[in-house]
């Protein structure tokens, strides 16, 4: 369980999150949404212990996240960061293997079990054909899958994903979120920053909308995705329809200008 308690966080003098309280229960699959600059990534950085909050604390399994040793934390929580630039041309396999670092046995590195776990993770996200390629040669979407494979190979109970599927094509997104849903059914607690309202509505049990550093909406898709709510949060007009097969709400956008075709 992750408890966000009275968190205010920011960079330098700029405060991005203010007095936020959130609870992520074990085994839940939660989406964090909101417009650009609403504090999603700051929330992820705080939860993953990288950013020291200005006030308040975040407790992971009852212990302040800042009090964990890095390796200890990585064993229970994996993080897929946003905007990663591969500095050098490491191979896909090496990148995925890094997910096993926290489980590693020191200098002699990765054993046969780690190899198997990575091979499985690589297969699971569908990049087996890329495994010996340098990541610097991959497309954005392919690289995103590599990061996903690394996160999977970490085998932690909590997964925090910041725009996991950005740059991935539509079919790929469905594949990745299917996989996340499966992992969730197997017991993983998932917190995922996502921009796509419709995908969020299809896959997640709970949606949290941030706006200007506060959690303004919180609940299951059917409750929070309404015309008024979404129009307010994103400051744009929308229509809500019901998914013809699944019955969950889906959001349709309309151009705000007065265009004639």
């Amino acid at each position: 369980m992750i408890a966000v308690e009275n968190i205010s966080a920011g960079y330098g003098r700029r405060k991005v999150l203010s007095d936020m309280n959130l609870l992520f229960c074990e085994g839940a699959m939660t989406a964090v949404l909101g417009p650009n600059g609403s504090g999603k990534t700051t929330l992820v950085s705080s939860i993953s212990g990288v950013l020291n909050p200005l006030s308040g604390q975040i407790k992971v399994a009852g212990k302040n996240v800042r009090d964990y040793r890095p390796r200890e934390l990585a064993e229970i929580m994996s993080v897929l960061p946003q905007k990663v630039e591969p500095a050098f041309g490491l191979t896909v396999k090496s990148m995925v293997m890094m997910g096993r670092y926290a489980h590693g046995s020191g200098f002699f590195g990765y054993d046969a079990e780690d190899e198997n776990i990575c091979a499985e993770a690589i297969q699971r996200v569908g990049i087996t054909h890329l495994k010996d390629r340098p990541v610097s040669e991959l497309s954005g979407g392919e690289f995103q899958r590599v990061l996903m494979a690394r996160t999977v190979s970490q085998q932690s109970k909590i997964m925090v994903l910041d725009e996991a599927a950005s740059g991935v094509d539509v079919a790929g997104k469905i594949e990745l979120f299917d996989m996340l849903k499966t992992l969730n059914k197997q017991g993983a607690t998932i917190i995922c920053v996502i921009h796509d309202l419709n995908l969020a509505s299809l896959y997640f049990d709970r949606l949290v909308f941030l706006s200007e550093g506060r959690a303004v909406l919180d609940g299951p898709p059917a409750d929070v995705i309404t015309k008024d709510n979404i129009s307010n949060v994103y400051k744009t007009s929308v229509s809500i329809v019901e998914h013809p097969e699944l019955g969950v709400p889906q959001v349709l956008f309309s151009p705000s200008g007065d265009f004639t075709l």
Binding site: S45, S48, G49, V50, P70, R71, E72, L73, A74, E75, S78, V79, P81, V84, M98, G99, Y101, A102, Q154
Partner: peptide, 8 residues
């Protein structure tokens, strides 16, 4: 940041 996330 990534190194931290991976447990280093």
């Amino acid at each position: 940041t990534q190194a931290r996330h991976l447990g280093m």
